[in-house]
């Protein structure tokens, strides 16, 4: 996987915290790995919409990566319920089902963006940067003893 400039929160210089919501453990692991490569921190995980709401209230993440097709409660309904309670929630839909009606419905309920599976890390990274906007900045480069700057 490529190297990415780690993003941190501008207000307290802490890593960006993510909530990953997907009914597939495999997909969650894959997204968690990407978050790690981006220098982010996993705040929580959920396998359905109901648990996502509980986990959002518990962890108050900076970004939610939310699947659409899930058992019990689908992602779009979970978005609506989270945004109703937290108007500033930043939710990115991550789904293989990305037709216009679905994307529009998610955006109308308050999602900020959409990325289609299979997820390309470079695409997800750029979307995260875009959604965070001015609330995030690049982490300062660490200088090693040899004087080389590294990410």
């Amino acid at each position: 996987m490529d190297q990415y400039v780690p993003l941190i929160r501008k207000k307290d210089k802490q890593p960006i915290r993510f909530l990953v919501v997907d009914d597939s453990i495999f997909a969650r692991k894959n997204l968690t790995k990407m978050i790690d490569v981006f220098g982010g921190e996993l705040a929580g995980e959920a396998g359905d919409g109901c648990t996502a709401i509980t986990e959002y209230n518990r962890t108050l993440p900076d970004i939610v990566l939310m699947d659409i097709t899930m058992p019990q409660m689908e992602g779009i309904e979970a978005v609506e319920r989270i945004v109703r309670q937290h108007a500033d929630a930043r939710i990115i839909m991550v789904s293989s089902v990305g037709y216009q009606e679905n994307i529009l419905a998610a955006l109308q309920k308050g999602a900020k963006h959409f990325v289609q599976k299979p997820v390309r890390p470079d695409v997800l990274y750029e979307i995260i940067r875009y959604v965070l906007g001015d609330d995030a900045e690049a982490a300062p480069a660490v200088t090693t003893l040899a004087g080389e700057a590294r990410l």
């Binding site: 597939s24 293989s96 089902v97 289609q116």
Partner: peptide, 10 residues
């Protein structure tokens, strides 16, 4: 399956 079928459904 989710990816292949989801993209086709899209």
């Amino acid at each position: 399956a989710n990816m292949v079928i989801g993209n086709a459904v899209t």
